[in-house]
Design a binder for these strands. Structure first.
Length: 598
RNA sequence: GGGGCCGUAGUUAAGUCGGUUAUAACGCUGGCCUGUCAAGCCAGAGGGCGCGGGUUCGAGUCCCGUCGGCCCCGCCA
């Protein structure tokens, strides 16, 4: 490009510069060769501007333009001119003008691309990921990453203005037994020992509170070696924050302010806090899940009291075993086909139900495999509670509460989608509070922390820790956006005796607690302020803000479902020498052995 | 660990009940063309059907296995 320096971005060219000579640089979006005139759309991250090569102006430049191909990198010097009347392009920001090229420098050529750089694409995601640098040339992806930057800046600005300090925490940390599977990193200097990549900076941010930093935040990578989903990557980014001398209300209020700021600076939208709240019990009771999508109805109703003595054995047995009988009413759902009902049954079974009882209320009465087990009075009562009328479909789940709620909660979402009940536009926030502190893991036969082991119990529930363990509620809160959990946090335990007690309830022996979390227990002794915080999943927030199906679309270099990077081909085998240095011997069973890469 | 969907030119897809030389569009190459912007018109090149095995006179089509992608259950404090 020699001494040339560009005057502005492509999309910044406007009629205000009419007659001026500009230098532009960018990629060739498309060449339209009329034999005489040649048009080239020049693209950079700002957008497009049309270049014109006219043989009457310069034969030499026009000849050079003939060899231009898609994605060549060009530098041009030319004069901004208004397009001739009738040739303006209203679809382009720069559509009123064009640049008549006087000098052309081809900075680089480009091989024929595996796919076109276009806003709309139906190229397989695998191909797009392999050539991620090309996929990232597409405006939709560029815009998503630009918005992500704006959100990060809004976060830094807001939290900084509110006295938070951005402090880095280690990436090579200590493995802890609770929670997700750790990514491990061998220590060459300490043979046979391993670091773990952080699942979150949880312990470090608490330690920073103990150190007196008072308010901390970080936009930070976290790592969890678990199976992937559309909204889960093995490495993901959290907006992580912690505050001292606060209770739940203080944290939630501060973070509502953050979310408001993010949406204002990111999308120009004004949210109106405070966001509505549901307790965990309400959320699960009415919506079946702890991340309720409250944008539509179809709420769950409890029929246990009413039907526990009914003539239907499935209902009776469930109730007798301490389970619940719940139902939803699908307005107008009586038109569902046999196949629809089979689909719904399949979903119910996949979430642990033994089957799905349904009733169609038709002009001819109750059409249902279970109708014959219910009396007229019972039918009347069910219809009243479910506010059901002719043309509706009723779906029942009778099981232990966790299964009945999950099944109906998932059916609710499926049906909401199926019937188009969920508004496509808009951002609906809800806090979910008062989570149970502990859950019982049947497989491991022990209590596990619902949030994490450092979450404080609610003061009034503290004494129930031994007597009514599962009833103890935590000072925890999740923020749910359009039915996705986008953040969660809690007030932490700040007393070492309470922390030790919780470890005990979790079945972590004193020695193990000392071994794994000893530094925290020790630190808690030396004057720990009451503190609490939250972490937001930045990727999930960005996916919802940009209307993306998967968080892969808001991550520059995401991984596939098998946790590989198809562009760089990570992970891969390493030299024996590298293994020797860290004292690692490979013992992969034959079947799981990595196949030779082609 | 399990369930579902999908692998055919560079890309996106079609390919019937197994049957000649595997189609199309876009892209690509060449030519024509001075107001296009998904430019247009004409001509052309390009794959042996993810991979391996099997059945068959014959397999892109059937069977078995395997690899990969996506969605989901489990898992993810």
């Amino acid at each position: 490009m020699g001494s040339w320096r560009r005057s502005c971005y492509c999309a910044d060219v406007s009629s205000a510069q009419n007659g001026q000579t500009l230098i532009l640089m960018g990629w060739v979006q498309r060449r339209r060769d009329h034999g005489g005139l040649i048009f080239v759309d020049l693209r950079d991250r700002s957008g497009l501007v049309q270049l014109v090569f006219n043989p009457e102006a310069s034969n030499e430049v026009h000849d050079k333009a003939h060899d231009i191909r898609n994605e060549f990198v060009l530098a041009v010097k030319g004069i901004v001119q208004k397009r001739p009347e009738g040739t303006e392009n209203p679809n382009l920001k720069t559509g009123q003008v064009e640049v008549a090229v006087a000098e052309l420098r081809v900075l680089n050529d480009a091989a024929t691309l595996p796919f076109m750089i276009e806003d709309e694409t139906d190229v397989a995601e695998m191909t797009r990921l392999k050539y991620r640098y090309l996929d990232l040339r597409r405006a939709p992806l560029q815009n998503k990453l630009i918005l992500r930057h704006k959100v990060a800046m809004a976060t830094r600005n807001y939290l900084t203005e509110n006295g938070f300090l951005e402090i880095e925490t280690p990436v090579l940390t200590k493995s802890t037994p609770e929670g997700a599977r750790d990514y491990l990193v061998p220590s060459r200097v300490n043979p046979g020992q391993f670091y773990a990549l952080p699942q979150s900076p949880q312990l470090f941010k608490q330690i920073l509170m103990i150190s007196g930093f008072d308010r901390y935040f970080q936009i930070v990578k976290c790592f969890r070696d678990e199976d992937l989903r559309a909204d889960r990557q093995p490495e993901f980014t959290q907006i992580d924050a912690e505050m001292s001398f606060v209770d739940r209300e203080d944290v939630m209020k501060m973070m509502e302010g953050l979310v408001v700021r993010i949406f204002r600076e990111g999308l120009g939208l004004d949210l109106n806090p405070p966001f509505p709240r549901l307790t965990y019990a309400e959320a699960v009771g009415r919506f079946g899940v702890d991340n309720p999508d409250v944008r539509f109805g179809l709420e769950l109703k409890d029929l246990t009291e009413m039907l526990k003595g009914s003539g239907f054995k499935v209902f009776n047995d469930a109730a007798a075993k301490g389970g619940v009988i719940k139902a939803v009413c699908v307005k107008g759902g009586a038109g569902f086909s046999r196949k629809d009902l089979d689909d719904l049954t399949e979903i119910a079974v996949s979430f642990g139900a033994k089957g799905l009882a349904w009733v169609k209320i038709t002009e001819e009465g109750w059409q249902s495999p279970i109708a014959k087990f219910l009396t007229d009075v019972e039918r009347q009562d069910i219809a009243t509670i479910l506010e059901a009328s002719t043309g509706d479909l009723l779906l029942f789940a009778a099981d232990k509460p966790s299964i009945a709620n999950t099944v109906l909660g998932r059916l609710r979402l499926n049906i909401g989608n199926r019937l188009g009940l969920i508004p496509k536009e808009g951002f609906n926030f809800v806090w979910v509070t008062e989570f149970p502190m502990l859950d019982y893991d049947d497989a491991e036969k022990r209590y596990v922390a619902v949030h994490h082991p450092f979450t404080a119990p609610m003061d009034e529930d503290l004494e129930k820790l031994d007597t009514d363990t599962l009833k103890v509620r935590a000072k925890a809160y999740d923020l749910v956006l359009n039915g996705s959990e986008i953040g969660g946090g809690s007030i932490r335990i700040h007393r070492s005796d309470v922390q030790a007690k919780v470890f005990e309830k979790l079945g972590i022996k004193l020695e193990e607690a000392q071994e794994r979390f000893g530094f925290l227990l020790e630190a808690l002794k030396y004057g720990t302020p009451p503190h609490g915080g939250i972490a937001f999943g930045l990727d999930r927030i960005m996916a919802i803000m940009t209307g993306s199906e998967s968080i892969r679309d808001v991550i520059a270099f995401p991984k596939t479902q098998k946790a590989t990077d198809v562009m760089s081909d990570a992970p891969s085998t390493v030299d024996q020498k590298q293994l020797d240095e860290i004292f690692i011997r490979i013992a992969v069973p034959k079947k799981a052995e990595a196949p030779a890469k082609a």
